[in-house]
């Protein structure tokens, strides 16, 4: 069964009424190129604050590329054109201090990547680099961010152990804790559970649902059940085009675009 050719003009992209919904981040006409290869076309999405938005699609559909462009992690590997509006500021502009911006838009990666330091230092390291010296304050942040990432009870007696002594799922939650210790606005997650077993995955999912009370979460996932379980909105990517963006329940029950329908019914990908 080959992949059907879909009409990239057949789109259904949700737009929010800005009077009723508070928007966390908006992209306009985002284009990403790897060398000569056009990897993402016309990325136009709006993300509502304190919601979980899933980005789904087959491998190579451009969903990770899109996500990594949001906090400029693609700067050295790709050319990104278009606007990324965060608090009315185009963060895709050359004038933006990307290091400052990344404190507001944090990221968790596909494979757990804790620093080769102790559990405690993994969380305090970046804070200290920013000049936070107060020991008591640091301890407080270690505790709250580990609690937020649902890891505290498992590691509270082992804070000085190496982060690599944790299991994969714990490492990933540590990475989440490390990111939220920076008090970001937006949390970008790039398939955070794809390398984990089902139990760790469900723990991460519970954590995310809890976190959306205070963070806007955008998550790339391969796993459609995961998208339908935890997210409020879902965007479907196909070959670098965003073909459908709607409430998650609409995407999974009554998709309006042929390609989305084929993808969620398992016809390709």
């Amino acid at each position: 069964m080959g992949i059907n050719k879909y009409d990239f003009n057949e789109k259904n992209i949700l737009k929010f009424d800005s009077n009723e919904h508070e928007l966390a981040i908006v992209t306009k006409n985002l284009q990403v190129f790897y060398g000569d290869k056009h990897a993402l076309f016309d990325g136009d999405l709006e993300f509502e604050r304190y919601k979980i938005t899933s980005l789904i699609g087959a491998s190579g559909s451009g969903k990770s590329t899109y996500l990594r462009s949001l906090n400029r992690m693609n700067d050295n590997v790709a050319r990104v054109e278009g606007e990324i509006l965060y608090r009315g500021l185009n963060v895709n502009s050359k004038k933006i201090n990307v290091y400052e911006m990344r404190k507001h838009i944090g990221m968790v990666f596909q494979r757990p990547n804790p620093f080769s330091k102790s559990i405690r230092e993994n969380i305090t390291f970046a804070l200290k680099e920013q000049g936070l010296k107060n020991k008591k304050k640091l301890e407080e942040i270690v505790e709250t961010s580990l609690k937020d990432a649902a890891l505290w009870d498992e590691v509270k007696d082992d804070l000085d152990k190496s982060a690599w002594s944790l299991s994969g799922g714990q490492q990933q939650r540590l990475c989440i804790a490390r990111t939220i210790a920076m008090k970001p606005d937006i949390l970008l997650l790039d398939e955070p559970a794809s390398a984990l077993d089902p139990i760790s995955t469900s723990k991460i999912e519970e954590t995310l649902v809890e976190l959306k009370k205070r963070y806007t979460i955008i998550i790339v996932t391969h796993n459609m059940q995961q998208a339908s379980r935890i997210s409020d909105y879902t965007a479907f990517f196909h070959l670098g085009h965003i073909l459908e963006y709607d409430k998650t329940k609409h995407i999974f029950t009554t998709p309006k675009v042929t390609a989305t329908n084929d993808y969620i019914s398992g016809n390709f990908g």
């Binding site: 404190k103 990666f109 804790p114 620093f115 970046a126 490390r178 920076m182």
Partner: peptide
């Protein structure tokens, strides 16, 4: 991944 981790924390 370690470089990405550092950069993503705003270092």
């Amino acid at each position: 991944l370690q470089r990405e981790a550092g950069l993503s924390l705003g270092l």
